[in-house]
Structure formats: structure tokens, C-alpha cells
Design a protein around this nucleic acid. Structure first.
Lengths: 210, 210
DNA sequence: GTAAAACAGTAACCTAAGTTACAGATTGGC
DNA sequence: GCCAATCTGTAACTTAGGTTACTGTTTTAC
């Protein structure tokens, strides 16, 4: 675990903090598709991502989903952060987008470290900052962009996160995450294909130039 | 200032912190409509609200606006919080919705107090928590609700914030904050009037039962 | 191998909401 | 008082995107 910690957080955290994390943290490997957290669940630990990616989703009362953002190496879940203090329930769902390696830290340490370690404070606030901004960007795209632009953004981001130019999803799955319908997504994807920007296949999409 | 501080934050903050705020904070009265912060500006101070309300808005590249949420007594701006650590620019605009009284605290104290005072840490995290959740609710309403529902929610919230059942705004102003067009808002408002839920007048709307 | 399920393409249609245009009423400046 | 600006109401039209329905193809289960 020490190696992973040093690699991802070594230049962020001071020595003492690294030691403490080593003592109370547990290294976990989660497979793609694994549900790390669901809406209404209580938060038990705080994840520090080492590798892979986690998608964070919102769901409304009818069960409609909406992708909020991805967490990557060096990120942590700010939703978790807020929940640690009061023992509040999660407002979001978190699912491993790829195979993911992370360190779980018990929430009890949060408060203590915030007082004790400057680097931890910085990390926590930095984390809030990026997460809030990503949430704002998601909100922007929903409020201001049309579906075709949102779809292009989605494909780009997904390709970046998965580090390949192939999106291994059905149209239906994409529709879920963008909170649209399968027919609409198929329609727009077909347009993108006709523009020569992507190539459509069964169960996957090849990105040419977006 | 001491009285205001005790009233709004007395049971939240410990004695030492109250003293420090007294030393470095400045009490300010801002009139309705005053712009406290704009997009791209650097954050200089952190507001602790005593009375009144502040609306927080997002703007896209075309200048289209969108109301995010209101800040009230006991609230602070979490955008400011994140900005304090790194010296980042503001991502949002903040305008006094009503005449507002607040205490401005220089951002330099943030870091120090977070380490020093337990009550300050709790306040900061609590603040993040509520703000993130409000942002999520705003996002929900944009992603999942139709404009008529959003309008009803807007009127309700505005009435609550202003503590009266009269909304002193033109249809155009409402359209801006909901990121819609005047004609659409007029249309929907007329429907609400026909349902007996509101009463329309020039420059104001009377809420009957929503 | 065969039946069932999953996936994608497409057409026809519907609706919420944005746009343009214009008219009448009220208000404010002078 | 008078003109200009502001505010609201309404009609006609457009469009993005959601819905339903029905293909044919590929994959999976048995």
C-alpha cells in the first residue's frame, strides 16, 4: 500500500499523515461496475483513488439517472467529505467505471486530520473546489447546451476517462446517463457518424475525430 | 457587531473564535440589488450572513443567467470557501436579494481558524454540505422538472426568502433567473392564474395558494 | 439448431418550450 | 399633457427532443 500511497499522494501529504493512513487505511481493488455507494446509504469510509475511475450519478424520484462527474487518481468524494461530519446519507450513487484501486479511510479520522495536518486540509479544500466546479460544469451543460453538444461532451469525457477511443456502451446506456431516450441518442449518434466524427457498431462506438 | 454575531452564531462558535471575528471582521450593510461578487473576480473576504438574503447566479458564455440558490442568515458562501485556499476566481455572481447585513472576514484567517477552532471546522463543513445539496436540488429541477414546476418552485422559494406572498418582479426578470424567455413565463404564469393559484399585476405577483 | 432477448435503425407523431410579431395598457421623463 | 419606454397578453410558427411502433440483425440461452 505504501507504494501506491507514495505514488498518488506522496508529494501532497506530509510524512506523519502518510504513516497514519498506512495504519488505518485499507487498500481495495474494485471491479468495473461495482457499486461503491448508493443513494440513502450511510457513509462508512472515505475513498482515496489510486487508479481507475468512478462515476458519480444522481437519481430522481422516478428512478431517472443523470451522470454528474467522474472521480480519478488523486480524487476523493466530496459528497463523502460532507457526510462524514454530520452522519448524513449519501445523495448520490457511485459506480466503478473501470477496474479501480483505492484506499479506504474510516470517516472518524477526518475531523482529527483536518485539525492536525495542513496538507490534509489543503487536500480536502482542493477536493471540494474541483468537485464544486465540476458540478457547476455539469449544470451548465444541462442548462445551456443542447443534447447534441452534451452527447459529444459525454463521448469525449468517456474516452478520456477510459483512455481509449472506443466507447463500450449501448445507446440505451448512454441515454440513461444523459437522462434522455434511446431513440434520441441513436438519432444523434447517427448524425455524428454521417458527419464522419464517429463509427457506430453493435455495443461499441469508435471515435474518429470529435 | 458583537450582538449580531452572538445572535446569529453565538451557539455555533466558541468564545475565542467570536473574539477573533470581532477583531478582524467588519460589519456591513448592503442594499438590495448590490453586487457582492462577480464571475472572474478574486475573492477578498468571506461573508457571514446576519440578516437578509443573497442570490447566487451562474452565467454561461452567452451571458445567459441561471439562479443557483439563496444564502440566508447563518449561511456563508462555499464558493468563497474553496476560493480562499487557492487564490481562484469566482465562478458565480452574488447579488443581494434584499437589504442584507453581514460580517466580512478576511480570507487569510480561514486556514488558521480551520486548524484552531473545532466549531469553525464544523461550520465550514456543514456549510459545504448544505450548499452542495442545494446545488444538487437545483440540478435536479433543471434536469428532471418541466418549466411549469420549476416556476412554481421559484415563486415559492422567492416568497419564503422575502417573507411575503408578493413577488416583486417582472416576467422578464423571472425568465432571466430561470433561463427561459419572457413569453414562456407569461404563458405559464397566466395558466397559474387561471388555476386560481396566483394573481397577476403589473410589476408584481400575488401568491394565493401554491 | 432454434427460440428468445438484446441491439440498432427509422418513420410518424406529439409536446414543451423557444421565437417573432404585434397590440394595448401603464408608467415615467420632460 | 405628450412622447417614449416598459410591461403584459396573445397568436402563429418553429424546433428539439420525447414517444410509439415496427423493422432487421446479432447475440445468448437452452
Amino acid at each position: 500500500m505504501l507504494q501506491e500511497l507514495r505514488e498518488g499522494y506522496g508529494n501532497l501529504f506530509e510524512k506523519g499523515l502518510i504513516d497514519e493512513i498506512m495504519q488505518v487505511g485499507t487498500l481495495k481493488d474494485v471491479p468495473e461496475g461495482y457499486k461503491l455507494m448508493d443513494i440513502g446509504e450511510y457513509v462508512k469510509g472515505m475513498p482515496l483513488l489510486i487508479s481507475g475511475a468512478i462515476k458519480v450519478l444522481r437519481e430522481d424520484s422516478d428512478g431517472d439517472e443523470l451522470l454528474l462527474y467522474y472521480l480519478e487518481k488523486g480524487d476523493t468524494c466530496s459528497m463523502t467529505l460532507t457526510c462524514c461530519m454530520g452522519d448524513a446519507k449519501s445523495e448520490v450513487r457511485a459506480i466503478a467505471e473501470t477496474d479501480t484501486k483505492l484506499i479506504m479511510v474510516p470517516v472518524q479520522k477526518m475531523e482529527e486530520w483536518t485539525a492536525k495536518y495542513r496538507s490534509w486540509r489543503n487536500f480536502v479544500f482542493e477536493s471540494y473546489h474541483t468537485r464544486l466546479n465540476e458540478l457547476l460544469q455539469t449544470l451548465d451543460s444541462i442548462a445551456f447546451d443542447r443534447m447534441d453538444m452534451r452527447l459529444v461532451g459525454y463521448l469525449k469525457e468517456k474516452a478520456r476517462i477510459n483512455k481509449e477511443d472506443i466507447i463500450r456502451n449501448t445507446h440505451q446506456e448512454i441515454a440513461y446517463e444523459l437522462h434522455s431516450s434511446r431513440v434520441v441518442i441513436s438519432r444523434l449518434l447517427k448524425k455524428l457518424e454521417q458527419m464522419g466524427k464517429i463509427e457506430l457498431h453493435r455495443n461499441y462506438i469508435k471515435i474518429l475525430k470529435l
